[in-house]
Amino acid sequence: MATILEVNNLVKKYGDFEAVKGISFSVEEGEVFGLLGPNGAGKTTAISMLTGVLPPMSGTARIGGYDIGENLEEVKKINGLVPQDLALYPTLSARANLNFFGRIYGLRGRELKGRVDDVLRIVALTERADGTVEKFSGGMKRRVNIAAGLLHQPRLLFLDEPTVGVDPQSRNHIFESVLRLNRERGMSIVYTSHYMEEVELLCNRVAIIDEGRIIALDTIKNLIAMLGGGVIHVGLPQVDDALLAQLSALPAVKEATLVPRPAAPPPAEGVEPETQEREPVAAGEVVKIVAEHSQQAIVNVIDFLNEQDISLTSLEILEPNLESVFLHLTGKKLRE
């Protein structure tokens, strides 16, 4: 399979803030590739550089064989962008919006009309084509937003958080459209989201991005396999290195490490730190146990703690999914 997108060490800074810190990855023709990360991880900035909206500070990327620095015009013809914002003109009809974006890509006359009808069919909005966008539901607007990115039949489509603020029914419509575009038209797709369920459902491979870096990149199966037989969080009153070593040595336990305490959030503006409401924090520490076999590991850990007369303060068994992988890798939840 040919590579349609190859990214090498791409960097973007805003003043002193480094939004994207040298990311590298590649996407194959016909692949649905996921960029999974929390809000502010750098996903949109990365896409903005790849679509020519922002110039990178350093690094390179090739799309369809064209360098984004040297052949941006060609790259733009290959790319399609569905931005996170509803990039539409609310007082115009869906058709007028699509006609405009089609003309921007050089479509005219019968060809333009045909493409507009085609994308309206894809997003199931043919019946509402002449309705004013401002009167549409959030989900319908999202679908027009996607349609606008498909008009010029891009080889590589960037979908940036396309389901934000969308009802379940419209979300399903969007998923179906994405899968159909990929399967029936062979369109390569880069799909960014902070919803792990969407990425698990749609993507072949996933890059997990956090604080501007790609911290893991593989197929979903392999990423989840990083968790081994599962991950267990055990709350204990007190933990020392000796206890961690003993837990790591238990049968069916691969590794036992202390979960770092999350940094205290900065005080809200205008509020004294002492008066801020804080989530109650359980006393003691949390040990993350990566198991070879989660059920056996739980039994062994509980038996060991009973023998040592150490009482449990909490016990959490993490589902084997991308959310757990992200938590395992960063110590944070995706939606924190």
């Binding site: 020519g52 015009e73 733009k76 962008l81 996170q84 539409l88 974006f101 921007i104 050089g106």
Partner: peptide, 13 residues
């Protein structure tokens, strides 16, 4: 504000 400017910047013009 609505983000359409980003979309125009991503277009070949």
């Amino acid at each position: 504000k609505v983000g359409s400017f980003r979309r125009l910047l991503a277009a070949p013009m």
